[in-house]
Amino acid sequence: MSEILYKILIQGGSYLTIWRGVQATVYITLMSLIFGTLLGICVCALRMSRVKILSVFANVYITLLRGSPVLMLLMLMYYGVFAGTDFEADSVAIVTFALNVAAHVAEILRAAISATDHGQVEAARTLGFSKFQAFYLVTFPQALRIAKPVYQSAIVNLLQWTSVVGYVSITDLTRVINNIASRTMQPMMTIVIGMLIYLVLAYVIHGIFAITDYLGVRKS
């Protein structure tokens, strides 16, 4: 047992390779999250727009992106759309995941905004708040609170989706784990270790949200 663990984790600097895999996974997750959230806000704004054509466009985008497997999209982007360009694999992966996350974020935000009480906005408007003020001061904080838990699980999902980037020549955590399993021929043990690392990363995300919740409570 200890010999197998040594082979998997230590031998020949294996832990450094695992660390590099973790770095790649976290980097892709984080960057896609940032770009995806920004794009998601824009898509949500389009989706809720009163201009019919914009709202239909956003709806088609959301349906397409949420309805297609992210691996297929990634392969299509890397081996198709960006094939003739100098874009590195990780940039293409970030673009792909950002596009996918944006669709999810847009729907999360829309659902959260719809869940707030429209009567409050009307009340704010009668009190002399501008449209923007009513949204920013009344709807937005409530929507944010509603969206937070769903957004948190969307991030954990994103972390797990990135495990397919091995298909486009990126050596992320999953690929490192697969390589180690092939090298040591001990797939069960190696995959359990890989899962534990993913679990730790997911709990770090949960932890960050828990801290923001705690700080939020103290502030209020």
Binding site: Q11, G12, G13, S14, L16, T17, R20, S182, R183
Partner: peptide, 10 residues
Amino acid sequence: PPIDFIASDG
């Protein structure tokens, strides 16, 4: 392995 193989340092 051992034809197509990735070593422990990646």
